[in-house]
Design a protein around this nucleic acid. Sequence first.
DNA 1: ATGAAAGCGCTAACAC
DNA 2: GTGTTAGCGCTTTCAT
Lengths: 312, 312
Amino acid sequence: MVSEEIALRVTEAATSLGYRPNPIAYGLRTNRSFTVGVLVPDLTNPVFPPIMRGIEITLEAAGYTAILANSDNDAARERTILDAMRGRRVDGLIVATAHRDDPLVAECLAEETPLVLINRKMEQGNVPSVVNDDAAGIAAALDHLAALGHTRIAHIAGPLTLSTAHARYHGLIAAMKARGIAVDETLFVCCEIFNVDEGRRCCALLLDRGRPFTAIVAAHDLLAVGCYETLTARGLSCPRDVSITGYNDIPLVDRLNPPLTTLRTPLHEMGVEAARCLLERIADAHAPAREIVVATELVVRGSTAAPRAALP
Amino acid sequence: MVSEEIALRVTEAATSLGYRPNPIAYGLRTNRSFTVGVLVPDLTNPVFPPIMRGIEITLEAAGYTAILANSDNDAARERTILDAMRGRRVDGLIVATAHRDDPLVAECLAEETPLVLINRKMEQGNVPSVVNDDAAGIAAALDHLAALGHTRIAHIAGPLTLSTAHARYHGLIAAMKARGIAVDETLFVCCEIFNVDEGRRCCALLLDRGRPFTAIVAAHDLLAVGCYETLTARGLSCPRDVSITGYNDIPLVDRLNPPLTTLRTPLHEMGVEAARCLLERIADAHAPAREIVVATELVVRGSTAAPRAALP
DNA sequence: ATGAAAGCGCTAACAC
DNA sequence: GTGTTAGCGCTTTCAT
């Protein structure tokens, strides 16, 4: 409707004057911020950076940006953050802090904020989520240990309010029963947080209980690292005295002494899927709530071997 | 001016109706977004999560939130991201990707976007920055090696366009000269990126050059890990054949085989300082550009020992 | 089809 | 001091 040349000159002038469309004004009018909130317990847990990268790359392609916050496993902080994010009118939320029964998440859902859980799922409420196949993963670890000849197997679980911890705990018990391995619940202990200190503490607890075992299935690589330390401190050796498996295959566990047998989870891919899933729900709030389950892969390294004798 | 009771009832009604002040509208009016852009090369590099946490906790206390993006060391991506962030009207920028001479940063500065560099500084332009004391850190590593009796010392540097790499490279040379240690520049090699693969490659390169050395000063822990691998692959042992030092003390390097001697940098604290510095500049764009230098601490572990014989 | 005008939720400037 | 109004930059609706 206007001459080609004029149109060009206008565009040119606009850019040369440094014009940029203002997303704030756009957002005010359309009620959309093109912003997504990502809530993790603690970014220094090495499982989260790859997830975050997967999320970011996917959101970016769709014109969205992510705002990130750490809850430090503190419900009060989580509430503050979630409030702040909703206050900032995020278009959606990706939550890695959810408990199996999480009132904060339920609240977001009630407010119709599009939301996807990552590495967690909820019992109720049909909440979309992206998780790895915990039961299959832990069963693979058990298979491996059983094949090596282990029968007295201990487990350091995460907090059972977390779906991953819960699924691994019960998955392990189910797998043991399926293979006819005696389940001795005095060899099962739950940590408070997935970190090295807790691994150290829980391993000591297991040893102090005085029930013999030859292997520990840890629900997280960092817990396994804590076990290494306690064993060393007590003059025990892995894998000679105790075999250990971890979970997640975080960086550098392949270079520990011994290298850790663990389950590799496709963290980046999980981030990508979570972001995709969220974008779907932002586009259509009533899209069916998908639960995406990704496969894990057992990586056998030096921390597992045939049992020598039962401990302690 | 209005009765206490009415005021209370109004506030009550507001919250019960789910009223939240809309920061988008606020931002449109005031031209402030209370948002800060954080640009890192790669969040899966373990130095960045603690920095990010320090930034976040500080910004949060001031009512700001961070949006995070990874450039993957790609100038084109960096430009896109920076444009997007400025387009989103971030109130300021924290940049961990800057080169010593960085036109993109210069451009942001020219547009008067408040900006702080972290773990990087620029040669020109009086840009506020938070860095560790690279020269002192690398000198501490050298002192330690020299005290053990090393005189043939190799260096795997980072890309010299980065201020950290540059400062460590020249700091090492200066320290060697100061201690009367011969500087053989054929024992100095620069990597492209701070990661394990590059460490592996550069260590192989050093060995292939055929000049004898008994120690490697690596400019980053991940490079040191790469050295471990190449040495192992060639049937050499650390520290028996070659001592190695890293930089940053990232998680798990204390549990490698052998545990890595390295320089601990207070990453969280650096993040806090960077955010504080940025908030200052947001409050007053003409505040003096501070350059904050934090101290590092040498952590001696098993990867360094007295030299046995010169290599190869 | 094209263009004018209203309004998103808030603040700052302005009258009173 | 207190209440009113204009307007931030955009989209969308409504006249034309």
